[in-house]
Design a protein around this nucleic acid. Structure first.
Lengths: 212, 212, 212, 212
DNA sequence: AATGAATGAGAGTTCATTCAT
DNA sequence: GATGAATGAACTCTCATTCAT
C-alpha cells in the first residue's frame, strides 16, 4: 500500500502529447492541415476549435489529444511554414553565382511562395499578436542568415560594405512588404515586373548615376 | 396598392453617435484614450470593453453612447494615428532641401514617432486582421504620397529614375521593419546609427562603388 | 497620448466583485441561497453552475458578476453556516448555570440545528474536499472556543481536569457523529433520548460506578 | 401469441467483470492500487480514469475490463480499507484483558492505522458523497460490533450500563475525529499523548472526582 | 449624459466511456 | 488480455451588448 502521491497535483502545464500509432499520426496531420485552412481563412481569433475539428472531420475532443490549445496548433503552423519557406529559398538561391544574383532569385522565390501560400503568409503576420516569441524567433533566424550572407559577400567584394545588421532587416522588410502587395493589396502586375523594379533599387539605390 | 416604402423597417445600419456637449466630448476622448492604452497593451481581442471603460473610468454602458462596437473604436484609433504620424512626418520633412534629404529626415522622424508611441504601432499592425479596409487605406495613402514624391524628384533629376510604385512600397517596408526593431525586437542601438546605415543603402544600394 | 500599460496583463486573480445597488445585493443573495439548495441536494460536484443560476432565476453569466467560481460560492456558504450555527449555540448555552449543563444544552441545540439544516450539514462535510482551508478554520474556531471553555470550567472545579485540547476535539467528534445519525443514517429516535444517553457518558465515562 | 419473454432486451445491469488469469489478477490489482494513490491524493472528482490508468501503467481501455465505472473502483477501495482496518483493530484488541483495555488499545491502533494510511482515511470520508450506501454500511458494521461489545461488557459488569447504541457511535466519533487531527489538521503531538488524554475522558467523563 | 446589472450565445476544454485493432 | 485513438455531451467561464433607472 504505497502512499506517495502520484504527482504534485498542480504540475503547471500537464505535458505535451505525441501520437503512438499511424492512425494517430494521420489524425494529427489532418488537424494541423485543417487549422491552417481555417485560421488562414478567418484569422486566429475567429477560428474556433470546433470549426477546425469540423474541417478535419474529427470530434472536438480529439483536438486536445494532439494540441493543448489553439495557441499550440498555431505555433506548430508557424514553425511548419518557416521550414517550408526556408526550403524554398534555399533551393532557389543555391545555384546563384554571386550575392546579388542570389538576392534577386530569393526575392522572386519569396514572392512566388507567398502567392502560392497566402494563408500561411497571413498566419505569420498574425503571429506577432498570438505568439510573439515564435514570431521573433522566426524573423530573427532569417535575419541572422541574411546578415552573415551579406558580411561574407562584402568580404569577398561582391557588395558594397555597410551596416549588415541594418541591411539584413531592410531586405527582409522589402520582401515582406512586396509580398503583402499580392496577398493583402491585390497587386495584379506580374511578379517579374516588381522583381526587376525592386532589384534595380537594391543594386543602385536612389542616387542618380555618376554623370548626367 | 401603395408603392414600396423607402425603408420600412430595418433602416440599414442603426445610427452613428456623436457628442453634443463639452462633457460628452470629454467622455468620448477619455474612452478613445483608454482604448488606445488597453488595446495597445493586450491586443484587440484580449481588450474587453469592460476593461476599456474601467480604464476610462466610465460605466460600461457609456461606451455605446459614443461607439457602436469595439471595431468602431479601433478604426477611430487607426485613423487618429494616421493623422498624427502624417503630421509628424510632414513637419520633419518640409524643410528638406531635396528628396534624398527628406528621405533621411523622414526615416528618422518615423523611428522617433514609433518609439514614442509603441502601442499605436502595434495597433496599426493588428488592423490588418481587425479592419483590413482601414489598414489598406492607411498604407495606400502613404504609398500614394511616396510615389508622387518619388516621381517628382525623378523628374527633377534628384533621384535615379525607376519603378516608383515599387520603390514607394519598398521604402515603406524599410521604415516599418526598422520600426519593428525597436517596438518588437528590443533594438538598443541609437536611432541615428540605424538611420545612417539605412540611408547609405537607400542612396547607393548594394553594388560596390566603381572605384575604391 | 499616455503610454503606460493599464495593468501587467496577468494580474493573477483579477479581483473579487461587490454589488453596488440594492438590486445587485438581492441578486447576490438569490444566487447564494440557490447554491445552498442545489449543492445541499446533489453535492458540490454534481451541482452545475447552470443549475444554480436556473434555481436562482438569473442568467448563467450573472453568476460571475458575484462569484469568481463554484468554489467561491461554496466557501461563502460554509462561512454563512458557521455564523448561523455559532449563533444558535451561543443562544442555547448562554443561560446555562455551569459547564456541564451548557454541554448538554449545546448538544441538544446542535442536533436540532442539524436536523433543521441537513443540507448545510452536508456542505460542511464536503468542505473537507472542496475547500480544506475553510474546513479547517471552521472546526478550529469551534475547537478553540471549546478548549477555553473546558479550561475555565476545570479551573473553577466544575469539571475534572484533563487534556483540554483533546477533550475539545472529542466533544466535537461526538456532536458531529450524533448529528450524522439524523442526517445520514436516518435515525428515528427522539433527540432527547440521544442527548440523555450521550450526556450520561460525557458525565461519567465508561467506568462502572464505585458502588451500586 | 408468445408469452412475454422474461427480459427481452435490456438485461438490467450489463455484466460484472472478473479476472480469469494470473496476469489479469495482477492488472486488476495494479489498477486498484493506482486508484488508491490517485484518489487519495486528489480526491474522487479530480481523479480522472486516465490518471489512474497512467499511474497503473496500463492503457485507459484496460480499466473497463475490470471495473464498470469510476464509482466501482471507489467502492472496491472502501471495502478494501474496511477489511484492512478491521484486521488491524482485531489484532490490536484481541489480547486485551477487558473492554476498557480493549478500548484503549483500539484507539491507539486506529490512530496508527490512520497515520499510516492517510489517503485511505480521506477516501472513506469522501465515500459519504460518492457512495453513500457503502459509507453507511461501513460505519454501520463498526457500530454494530461496538454496540454488541459494549452490551456484553456491561452485562459482565466491566463497564457502566448505558445507551449502547449511542455510546457506540460516540466512540466511533471520537476515534474518527482524533484521527482527523493527524490527517487533516497536522497534529504533531505523539499518539500516546492523545490516547492517554482521550482514555481518561472515556473512563471517567467530565464530572469531577467524588473526593479530591 | 451616465450608470451598472443583466443577458445569453458561444467559446475552450475535460473526461468517462467505447471499440477497432 | 491489452491497447490507445476517438467520441461528444457537458461543463465552466467570457464578454459584447442592452436597458431600466
Amino acid at each position: 500500500m504505497p502512499e506517495p502521491a502520484p504527482s504534485p497535483k498542480a504540475a503547471s502545464p500537464p505535458k505535451p502529447p505525441s501520437p503512438k500509432t499511424a492512425r494517430g499520426e494521420a489524425t494529427r496531420r489532418a488537424i494541423l492541415d485543417a487549422a491552417q485552412r481555417v485560421i488562414g481563412a478567418v484569422g486566429f481569433n475567429d477560428a474556433s476549435i470546433t470549426a477546425i475539428t469540423r474541417e478535419a472531420r474529427v470530434a472536438s475532443g480529439t483536438f486536445y489529444i494532439y494540441f493543448r490549445s489553439k495557441e499550440e496548433v498555431f505555433e506548430a503552423l508557424v514553425l511548419d511554414m518557416g521550414r517550408s519557406l526556408r526550403r524554398a529559398l534555399t533551393a532557389a538561391t543555391e545555384g546563384a553565382p554571386d550575392r546579388l544574383a542570389a538576392e534577386k532569385a530569393g526575392l522572386r522565390a519569396f514572392l512566388a511562395f507567398v502567392i502560392a501560400h497566402p494563408s500561411l503568409y497571413r498566419i505569420i503576420r498574425e503571429a506577432l499578436f498570438v505568439a510573439p516569441a515564435v514570431y521573433r524567433a522566426y524573423f530573427q533566424s532569417f535575419a541572422d542568415g541574411y546578415r552573415e550572407g551579406l558580411a561574407a559577400a562584402a568580404a569577398r567584394g561582391e557588395i558594397r560594405p555597410g551596416d549588415d545588421e541594418t541591411r539584413a532587416w531592410m531586405l527582409i522588410g522589402i520582401s515582406v512588404t512586396l509580398g503583402e502587395r499580392y496577398v493583402v493589396f491585390g497587386e495584379t502586375r506580374p511578379v517579374e515586373e516588381l522583381v526587376e523594379g525592386a532589384h534595380a533599387m537594391i543594386l543602385h539605390g536612389l542616387t542618380p548615376g555618376e554623370r548626367p
